[in-house]
C-alpha cells in the first residue's frame, strides 16, 4: 500500500542494482552490513519525513 513517507530497507538485489548504476561493486557481505545501517536509518527517515513541518525552510 502506498505511504506518504520513505519505505523500509530495500532488498540486497535492489542495492546491488543501485550500486552498479553508480559504478560501485560491493559483495554480498558488504550489502548485508549496509542493510544493518539502513534498517535503523530508513525508519528514522520515514518518521522525520512524517513529522517535519511543511513550512520548515531549507538550511
Amino acid at each position: 500500500m502506498p505511504t506518504e513517507s520513505s519505505p523500509g530497507p530495500p532488498s540486497i538485489e535492489f542495492l546491488r542494482a543501485i550500486a552498479a548504476q553508480q559504478g560501485v561493486d560491493p559483495d554480498d557481505a558488504d550489502l548485508e552490513a549496509v542493510l544493518g545501517f539502513l534498517s535503523v536509518v530508513m525508519p528514522g527517515l520515514a518518521e522525520i519525513e512524517r513529522r517535519l513541518p511543511a513550512e520548515t525552510p531549507f538550511a
Partner: peptide, 16 residues
C-alpha cells in the same frame, strides 16, 4: 555504502 544508498531526498530532508 549506506550513504550511497540513501535517497537524495534524505540529504535535503536532513538539512531541513
Amino acid at each position: 555504502l549506506a550513504g550511497l544508498f540513501l535517497p537524495s531526498t534524505a540529504h535535503v530532508t536532513g538539512l531541513r
